[in-house]
Design a protein around this nucleic acid. Structure first.
Length: 288
DNA sequence: ACGCCCGCCTGTAAGC
DNA sequence: TGCTTACAGGCGGGCG
């Protein structure tokens, strides 16, 4: 019997945070010597390659921030390079320009100090764009509408509970809603709900204050643990860090992609349910 | 106004 | 064996 997960280990908050940390060490202080674009879809909000490349050319990268699943690379101008990895995007470091270029490499950034940053993305859901607005967080609509970042901008239980009660939405849907909380996708919503002992379809306005606290604490703890283990890499090896290394948090998953296996807490068989188009994994006994 | 579902994509694997 | 089909899902947009 094969229960192997086919799911993509799409980058969520912990994976994007690992890439951010790697980028901070690798590219901050480096000056862009040249930019090559092969995949136009990856820079789709620009009208031309030139419009994307010009503001990057000759600029130095001064900082790397993360907001939810977005990476923000500040330049020594007013510009910011915004990157979203989508489903299958990878950022890879190459020591020299001679390092073989993988298939589906859409953008290559060469630094004057040597080395190259490459954006590889087979399914092209990811994207890169440069913006020169003074306040990216407020002026780029995707970023303006993001909810709080659970690791970067924690909120109080009171606020969280209030926010939950304002919706009458299934918990899983709400956790994955980037406008509610930024950075959580299919893997971590399931892991968080298991840790909190709450079912995916509990309505957000039915939680006791104890459950609100448990959900908030579980959210922060699961994400911190996942960062500690450098993210989740599933069977397809989709997520890798800047050096191409997989994460290890998949070995610590309690429910995700563990359909048919026994619950680590109560030993009962874990369930997979298709909700709309996506899979939800949970324990029927531990989650109420 | 808000929830739901499609389209965008390609690689992988199951099914016939 | 080889072709076809289903599936993975973030996100924007359209529809009811």
């Amino acid at each position: 019997m094969c229960h192997q997960a086919k799911g993509e280990g799409m980058p969520e908050l912990p994976e994007v945070e690992i890439v951010r940390q790697d980028l901070e060490r690798e590219v901050v202080g480096k000056k862009i010597k040249s930019v090559e674009v092969h995949g136009l879809r990856s820079i789709r909000r620009h009208k031309s390659k030139k419009q994307f490349i010009d503001p990057l050319d000759g600029r130095k990268i001064t900082a790397v921030r993360r907001r939810g699943k977005y990476l923000l690379l500040s330049l020594d101008s007013d510009g910011v390079l915004v990157i979203h990895l989508g489903m299958s995007g990878q950022l890879l470091r190459a020591k020299t320009t001679r390092t073989p270029v993988p298939k589906h490499t859409h953008v290559l950034i060469t630094f004057t100090q040597g080395g190259q940053l490459r954006f590889v993305d087979p399914r092209t859901f990811g994207e890169m764009f440069v913006t020169e607005t003074a306040d990216v967080d407020k002026e780029v609509s995707e970023l303006r509408h993001l909810g709080f970042d659970p690791l970067d901008e924690p909120i109080s239980w009171g606020q969280f509970g209030h926010s939950l009660a304002q919706h009458k939405t299934k918990l899983k849907t709400l956790l994955m809603d980037q406008k509610f909380v930024a950075g959580i996708g299919n893997i971590y919503s399931d892991e968080i709900l298991f840790a909190a002992g709450l079912r995916w379809d509990r309505l957000s306005d039915t939680l006791s204050s104890q459950e609100v606290r448990r959900l908030y604490r579980s959210m922060v703890e699961v994400l911190i643990e996942a960062v500690k283990y450098r993210g989740s890499t599933l069977a397809d090896e989709q997520f890798v860090d800047l050096d191409g290394r997989p994460g290890e948090f998949q070995d610590h998953h309690k429910v995700y992609a563990r359909e048919g296996q026994s619950c680590r807490r109560c030993r009962r068989v874990l369930v997979r349910k298709r909700v709309g188009t996506r899979s939800t994994y949970f324990c029927d006994a531990c989650q109420v």
